[in-house]
């Protein structure tokens, strides 16, 4: 789903953000990018969303050669990528519903699809009762859930999250992680940059650690690889499930605390959502 081959990124002025980085992320995987500030996590996310081009090396996103792609094709690529940021990036003069609907409207989706999809996605993130609120009337965690809903409403193949819990307290963060986990379970590939080791360890997913622009740890590494025959993209390879690292008691307590937060979401919403994806793909724009 995402493949980087020997990617190096040097910014104007000679700052080397990434050095010879290679990663393979399979469809449906959940990957944490960890490392100190300035280690290259955000640069990696920006390269994956084709906001920037690498100085050297190749990047393939959802089967497309993103690093060679001309600028005018980028919008189409973006429709298969959802993005979530630390600062939410919500429009203050639009309601929760309008903020989420915006992602569908500006990509030219028909109105009935907007009316149908937005409530479903808001239900998934537990904001069904707050559709008419404005961002300033919401807590940080709720705002981030709106931004996740907006990122997911287009049913992207990939969700990229750059420090999505960076502005939130631990309990709220766990709530956000539950939602990202749900989204991941619909088959969406999730890549999340974070400093929050507690969350990373609690989630028990693949971890890629960066330091000064290099990958110093990739927990799926060294394990055998297996071709995914169901996946049409030949370059997408499925790594074996990553070995769990540490047993995190504190994070697990936080997870339990966050359960209450999301208790109002019925479990079968997930199935409803995945059904929604079927008729969505039929409406895929020309």
């Amino acid at each position: 789903m995402i493949r980087l081959e020997n990617v190096t990124k040097v910014y104007d002025g000679g700052v080397v953000a990434l050095k010879d980085v290679s990663i393979d992320v399979a469809k449906g995987e959940f990957v944490f990018l960890v490392g100190p500030s300035g280690s290259g996590k955000s640069t990696l996310i920006r390269l994956m969303m084709r906001e920037e081009r690498p100085t050297n090396g190749g990047i393939w996103i959802a089967g497309k050669h993103a690093s060679k792609m001309p600028n005018w094709k980028v919008p189409h690529l973006r429709r298969s990528i959802g993005t979530v940021f630390q600062d939410f990036k919500l429009l203050p003069n639009k309601t929760v519903f309008e903020n989420v609907a915006y992602a569908l409207e500006v990509t030219g989706r028909p109105r009935h699809l907007v009316r149908n999809q937005v409530p479903q996605v808001l239900k998934l993130v537990g904001l069904s009762t707050k559709t008419d609120r404005y961002p300033r009337q919401l807590s940080g965690g709720e705002q981030q859930r709106v931004s996740i809903a907006r990122a997911f409403v287009n049913r992207p193949l990939i969700l990229l999250a750059d420090e999505p819990t960076g502005n939130l307290d631990p309990a709220t963060s766990v709530g956000i992680m539950r939602i990202l986990d749900r989204i991941n379970r619909t088959g969406t590939t999730v890549v999340m940059a974070t400093h929050d080791h507690a969350i990373v360890d609690a989630m028990r997913r693949r971890v890629v650690q960066l330091e000064r622009g290099r990958i110093v740890r990739d927990q799926s590494r060294g394990v055998y690889e297996q071709r995914d025959t169901a996946e049409p993209e030949p370059e997408a390879e499925v790594p074996t499930p990553p070995a769990d690292e540490i047993e995190p008691s504190r994070a697990e307590r936080e997870l339990a605390a966050a359960e209450a937060d999301l208790a109002e979401i019925p479990v079968d919403d997930l199935e409803e959502l995945t059904e929604g994806m079927a008729d969505d793909s039929a409406m895929e724009e020309s």
Partner: peptide
């Protein structure tokens, strides 16, 4: 708004 439009894949012409 432009930043968000671009994030969610609005075409350049849009």
């Amino acid at each position: 708004e432009i930043e968000i439009m671009k994030l969610v894949g609005a075409s350049n012409w849009y």
